[in-house]
Design a protein around this nucleic acid. Structure first.
Lengths: 208, 208
DNA sequence: TGTACATCAGTGAACGCGCGTTCACTGATGTAC
DNA sequence: TGTACATCAGTGAACGCGCGTTCACTGATGTAC
């Protein structure tokens, strides 16, 4: 077998996670049954327990995978944006625009944020999962805070805003935007909110 | 029995809803068992089915109750704020501040938003519940949109923002702020985000 | 090149527990006459 | 004021189904010598 291809088992595991993510975002973790997952993937129940020690391990893997994917997406997106502009502010503004466009292009709208899903089922999970979730959000805070520090060096803020709070606003607005989009069933709400935040960032560092 | 007091049964029903809300926000709807609720309230299982035809009816009642409470809270809050300022902008800014303070004063932080909880378990519920949720968010959009129209009459916006999107931003930021607050376990995040939004509104209608 | 063994990626059957729901009943309170 | 009946707010026992988990096994692939 070609060494570059994933091993047979790793692929099955990935398909389980893929199917599980969809189901968890749609119905929640408790209502996502192992039976349902194995039916979709086409293995037996014992096959599931070969890949995961139990449902709790599935939860951990699911969240970790989501966080990793999200981090990588943000890394490459803002990196690409910075390649177009060496100025940190304009690079960020371009990045936000690209982000909004990416969200607008998702076929059926954004499928949901795993961090938010876990948050609203906190007590189902052990402290490892909750800590994973916490660290992910704090990492996003640091990520954007660093960027705002860089921007503020060249563009002193015109409005009295706390930069940590502004960094949190990205996460809050994305998570909130996903919810409003899903609930009103209008996929444009999320990208709109990102663009609205972008306008705020402009106003803060460039003025009206 | 005094006619002003709630009937015996209505009180039990209310206690069931109270306990259920807490549990649903902590663990999700599917993981909230009827056994658990009746144990907390002190009745038998059949007692539960006297008050609700089934679990689905509990879900509907839970969401409806949450929406009604939230609507009333916003009504009285911004009404009180307007009594202090007859100017629509300054009344709104005062209202936002009062709202932020109210959120900051919640003992263990905000317990969670039922609309968001339902959103992340959509497929558990029938279309009635989903429609209820949708209408609630759209009603919030209309509420704030009307306010922004009133404000824009006297204070032409200095920044190019869509007022419907700005209205949605309130819901998005509150829902997102609740999530970030819960996940990082810092109850100050939510009020901070509301104050950050307030600063944005100032900038839009008053300039820097 | 062949053989022995180990690991991988599962299968199949069984388990017990908790869950939502049903149904026939009941004792306390309220209402009509 | 007393009696008959109706409604309210539950009780108690039983149900079957689906769920997560366990355990002994297996056939295909990989590795050592």
């Amino acid at each position: 077998m070609d060494g570059a291809l994933p091993k047979r088992g790793a692929e099955t595991r990935e398909r389980l996670l893929e199917v599980a993510e969809r189901s968890v975002l749609d119905k929640g973790f408790a209502a996502t049954s192992i039976d349902e997952l194995i039916a979709a993937v086409g293995i037996t129940k014992s096959g599931f327990f070969y890949h995961f020690k139990g449902k709790e391990e599935l939860a951990t893997a699911l969240l970790q995978r989501y966080i990793d994917q999200e981090d990588e997406l943000l890394d490459t997106l803002f990196q690409r944006a910075d390649e177009l502009h060496e100025d940190p502010l304009h690079g960020f503004l371009v990045g936000l625009k690209m982000f909004a466009e990416m969200m607008a292009d998702l076929p059926g709208g954004h499928p949901g944020c795993m961090v938010a899903s876990v948050c609203y089922q906190e007590n189902l999970f052990n402290s490892e999962v909750r800590e994973l979730n916490r660290e992910a959000v704090l990492a996003w805070r640091r990520r954007f805070r660093e960027r705002f520090d860089l921007i503020a060096e060249r563009y002193p803020p015109r409005l009295p805003v706390d930069l940590d709070a502004l960094a949190d606003m990205v996460s809050a607005l994305v998570d909130g935007g996903i919810i409003i989009s899903k609930v009103v069933r209008d996929r444009h709400v999320l990208p709109q909110q990102i663009m609205l935040f972008r306008e705020y960032v402009r106003a803060i560092f460039l003025g009206a």
